[in-house]
């Protein structure tokens, strides 16, 4: 390179390794918290939710989400970074609208999944976690769900990486599976931190399971297994529809899309373009 002052060197290896370490620590923190919550004596949430489990759930999941954000954010190219605020506005706007309808769906991950499809699993995970953090400025109750939101972004990115968005019918399937995992991870938060769900629709489903004698965590987990997979299947399908409506020049700007051929089916869609 003749002009090192005005051109970019290859990215440094040490910095990348440090960031990777933070990402791994974040993922470990989330996984450990989840396993701890499932394994420890959960009976202590009864008497006034005396906080051991609550504090562990809050602290562990939030720590994991923050480590993920700090680890991933500085590695993102600016073209991905500027999409995150856009994705957050989409998430929050749709999430707020859906929350006000009383239906047992959330629709608050469309932006996250869109970023994941265009920019990959790490960007998706950071977007999901950031979405919860920023949304908490107008609705603090979403903050504890940051880890679940990060998981959705990560899994959506993996689905895109392995070609599940190349066929239109595979996207909802990937969404369904993502929803199962995300629901199971988020259920302890609803149970241990809030003692229930925040929506009227979801609350009614939980009540139904409780009436059949289920424990609170079991009832909330079952409710999540009803709502989340459907919700994420719809969200993934909507995102696939949007991604295919975008002009090729726009989607091909993203190295992730080019490298893993994320939207290969598009060529068959518009062969003349």
């Amino acid at each position: 390179m003749s002009q090192p002052s005005r051109t970019l060197p290859a990215p440094g290896q040490a910095a990348v390794r440090n960031r990777r370490l933070l990402e791994i620590l974040g993922a470990v923190s989330i996984a450990a918290t989840f396993i701890f919550l499932v394994l420890t004596q959960p009976a202590d949430i009864t008497n006034g939710l005396a906080g051991g489990s609550t504090l562990v759930a809050l602290g562990g999941f939030l720590l994991g989400a923050i480590l993920l954000i700090v680890g991933v954010l500085p590695t993102l190219p600016t073209s991905t970074l500027v999409l995150i605020p856009v994705a957050l506005v989409l998430n929050i706007a749709l999430g707020q609208i859906m929350g006000s309808t009383g239906l047992p769906f959330y629709f608050d991950a469309i932006g996250t999944v869109l970023i994941a499809v265009l920019a990959g699993p790490a960007a998706g995970a950071a977007t999901g976690a950031l979405s919860s953090v920023v949304w908490s400025f107008i609705n603090p109750t979403v903050l504890p769900f940051a880890a679940g939101a990060a998981l959705i972004g990560f899994l959506a990115g993996l689905a895109a990486r392995y070609g599940l968005f190349r066929r239109f019918y595979l996207a909802p399937v990937a969404g369904f599976v993502t929803g199962i995992l995300a629901g199971v991870v988020s259920a302890p938060i609803a149970a241990f931190v809030f003692g229930g769900t925040s929506g009227v629709g979801t609350g009614a489903i939980v009540s139904a399971f409780r009436a059949m004698g289920d424990t609170l965590l079991a009832a909330i987990t079952k409710q999540a297994l009803i709502s989340d997979p459907m919700d994420k299947a719809i969200v993934f399908a909507v995102v696939a529809m949007l991604a295919y409506a975008l002009p090729r020049r726009t989607t091909l700007q993203f190295a992730f899309v080019r490298r893993f051929n994320v939207l290969a089916g598009k060529k068959q869609d518009a062969p003349d373009a």
Partner: peptide, 20 residues
């Protein structure tokens, strides 16, 4: 200020100089 160090040449290949 960096002196005049000649033109940047682009060939349309992946190892082209990347402008900062």
């Amino acid at each position: 200020a960096p002196g005049d160090s000649g033109p940047l040449v682009f060939h349309g290949t992946p190892d082209d100089p990347r402008i900062n």
